[in-house]
């Protein structure tokens, strides 16, 4: 399999499941094209609900459908889904405990030059703060497939953020270690622990390879499960290393870095550096250009590791 966008993988997995399970319903807010859900809408029109540009309505309607036995997948740009519909996510989904899976597409800075209105750099913090909400940021389309297949089996709320573009996979097809709510150890190491999520796992893995050539042995942990955070994996990775670096496509407050820092500080205190987007509108550019500018790439991560270990 070549590389495809995570959102397209989600559509494929749901189409495969919808063949047998008529209770699977996908909802879009004029987002079927951007969400790669046109194929679902065309193949299963009876299981597709178009809500129009009304994200609050999208989430409430999904909750109502779920209350009546449907497995609702609400697909909408992460920026709108996570903050415009925040109260609906909190009350109608999490608090009422409805089986709604919130699929935030084009997450982080995927929309690049469209600007801050279209960026979702607060979604991990926002959604993680809601009781009974789970938060996942898969790192590639192969892990996305495993994640959605696993989530299809439960009836609890979850928020899943994926990026807009097809990115180089972290894993190889047929070799995707995956256990729900357990972080994946991408590689073991002793000098520094790199803990990343979403699209930042690949550059973290690449950084570890750069560092290896210089004799620095870095571990890489794919923390796709932000909530519930796999604290044991954090403690294991941090315990084995001199320092920890977290990497995420998110604002500095309340994301992966904050969560890892809380855990490390409480259990195995040592230095933790958080590589994040700034607490400001990001510079104009493609997501790749934005990552490069803020050092959220293999060289930036490796440079931070060298600095810490020097």
């Amino acid at each position: 399999m070549g590389k495809i966008a995570d959102k397209q993988m989600i559509c494929e997995v749901l189409m495969e499941a919808a063949k047998e399970d008529k209770d699977i319903v996908a909802l879009c807010s004029d987002s079927r094209g951007s969400g790669s859900f046109t194929a679902f809408a065309e193949s299963y029109p009876e299981q597709f609900v178009e809500v129009g540009i009304a994200e609050q309505n999208l989430v409430s309607i999904a909750a109502g459908l779920a209350k009546c036995g449907k497995k609702a997948y609400a697909v909408s740009p992460a920026c709108f889904l996570s903050t415009r519909s925040y109260e609906q996510c909190k009350v109608d989904v999490a608090y009422s405990n409805t089986n709604v899976k919130l699929i935030g597409i084009s997450g982080g800075v995927s929309y690049g030059a469209l600007g801050m209105s279209h960026h979702s750099a607060q979604d991990i913090a926002a959604l993680s703060a809601i009781p009974n909400m789970r938060v996942y940021l898969p790192s590639d389309h192969l892990q996305t497939r495993e994640l959605i297949r696993a989530l299809l089996k439960d009836e609890k709320p979850a928020y899943i953020r994926v990026g807009r573009n097809a990115v180089d996979p972290v894993y190889e097809d047929g070799q995707v270690p995956f256990e729900l709510d357990k972080a994946t150890v991408v590689r073991e190491g002793t000098n520094v622990a790199l803990i990343a999520c979403g699209e930042m796992v690949k550059p973290a893995k690449d950084a570890a390879e750069l560092l290896e050539k210089e004799g620095i042995c870095a571990s890489v942990l794919d923390m796709y499960c932000l909530k519930p955070l796999d604290r044991e994996a954090v403690i294991r990775a941090a315990g084995n290393a001199r320092a920890v670096i977290t990497v995420e496509e998110h604002a500095p407050a309340g994301g992966l870095g904050s969560m890892v820092s809380q855990t490390v500080a409480a259990v195995c205190p040592k230095k933790v550096w958080n590589l994040t987007l700034p607490d400001a509108p990001v510079i104009t550019g493609t997501s790749g250009e934005v990552f490069d500018y803020y050092g959220l790439n293999a060289e930036g991560i490796a440079a931070k590791a060298r600095e810490i270990l020097a």
Partner: peptide, 17 residues
């Protein structure tokens, strides 16, 4: 402002089924 939109989902499920 939540009740009506949630009821839309419930009524839609009734139509689907």
């Amino acid at each position: 402002g939540h009740g009506l939109p949630v009821c839309v989902g419930m009524a839609k499920a009734g139509k689907m089924d």
